[in-house]
Amino acid sequence: MRPVLAVAATLLAVVASVAASIALGPANVTVPDVVAVVVAHLGGPPADVSRIQDGIVWELRLPRALLAAISGCGLALCGAIMQSLLRNRLADPFVLGISSGASTGAVSVAVLGVGAGALSLSTGAFVGALVSFVLVMMLATGAGGGTGPVILAGVAGTQLFSALTSFIVLSSADAEQTRGVLFWLLGSLAGAGWSDVAVCAGAVGIGAVACVVAAPSLDAVTLGSDTARALGVSLLRLSVVLLGVTALMTATIVASAGAIGFVGLVIPHAARILVGTAHHRVLPVSMAIGAVFMVWADTLARSVFAPQEIPVGVVTALVGVPAFAIILLRSRRGVR
């Protein structure tokens, strides 16, 4: 019953966290008001709130909270997948340079005007993530393949695309653009809208289905390459599909929310502590914990120094580093 209870508790925590996050802020809005507004917009009876309160909940805070939850869900899922495929518990979307490549693609569209208006920020981020992913895989293949070369190639790709992003911003953006881009690169959900929610939900939904379907194969991969092949798992096809899905999710999230670190690194470890290592349990619990974590990280980012916001990536790093240190100490002592 422990895995079932863990999944149910984390899903309940996601809903409660979103509702509480929307209610928190300078405007006088309560959780029952939030529920009433959402029900009214979904076809229920009218909510007994003012138009201003209705707009605050439906147009401002609800899209932002949902985007935070979806982003946390997707980043945690990406981290869990990459840690399993690479058999390295330090892997996350940043390891393969996917986040850095997505940032470069998005900045190229926003600052340089690549595509002459025909490319959206999400498209630019996805192209950048794809280019980074292909480059890293080519470097790793040329070095003989394996986990070690992949990680080393990922580090090189991360540094390359981070440098390109900095060069574009510093050489082509004015002072206002530079400030906005740098704030966005650290993670910001301030401009979240329903279109961002829809795009991210679609990408993460596709990724979640593909990853959950591949959960038995991931269990086989964790036992070793030879064992996986003996069980009929095509490692090449599995890696291409799941890493491609990971690139899609990461690029979409980076385009909407910026490059947010430590979620994909820390959350899968917390999920394994709760429900063990079987992927049909680890993946959904990781997604739920990631959603809760991101919702509260964004709530802290917009409320601690209100009315001034801090980038949500700063909050995830400040919370994620101590949490990861605790997890490492627990693992070293053999605590599961």
Rank of each mutant, 00 (worst) to 15 (best):
L235M: 05
L235N: 05
L238T: 03
L238Q: 04
S239C: 01
V240F: 04
V240M: 07
V240N: 02
V241F: 04
G244C: 05
G244R: 10
G244K: 11
V245N: 05
V245M: 13
A247G: 09
A247S: 15
L248R: 14
L248E: 08
M249E: 08
M249I: 10
T250F: 05
A251I: 10
A251P: 14
T252L: 03
I253H: 10
I253P: 15
I253T: 13
I253L: 09
V254Q: 05
A255Q: 00
S256R: 04
S256F: 02
S256E: 08
A257P: 01
A257K: 01
G258T: 04
A259E: 01
I260S: 04
I260K: 06
G261I: 15
G261C: 15
F262T: 08
F262R: 15
V263W: 03
V263S: 10
G264N: 12
G264C: 11
G264Y: 13
L265V: 01
L265F: 05
V266Y: 12
I267C: 13
I267F: 11
P268H: 10
P268F: 09
H269F: 14
A270M: 15
A270S: 15
A270W: 03
A270K: 07
A271D: 13
I273Q: 13
L274K: 09
L274T: 05
V275Q: 07
V275A: 05
V275I: 08
G276I: 02
G276C: 11
T277I: 14
A278K: 13
A278W: 04
A278F: 10
A278C: 10
H279E: 12
H280Q: 14
H280P: 10
H280L: 15
R281Y: 11
R281C: 12
L283K: 00
L283V: 07
P284G: 03
P284K: 08
V285K: 06
S286V: 07
S286L: 06
M287Q: 01
M287V: 00
A288G: 06
A288Y: 07
A288W: 06
I289R: 09
G290M: 07
G290C: 10
A291G: 01
A291T: 00
V292M: 12
V292W: 12
F293L: 01
M294P: 12
M294E: 10
W296G: 05
W296Y: 10
A297C: 15
A297I: 11
A297F: 13
D298A: 04
D298P: 04
T299A: 14
T299K: 07
A301R: 08
R302E: 09
R302P: 11
S303E: 13
F305G: 01
F305T: 15
A306Q: 03
A306Y: 08
A306K: 01
P307H: 06
Q308T: 09
E309Y: 00
E309L: 02
E309V: 03
I310V: 13
P311Q: 03
P311F: 00
G313C: 06
V314I: 14
V315Q: 06
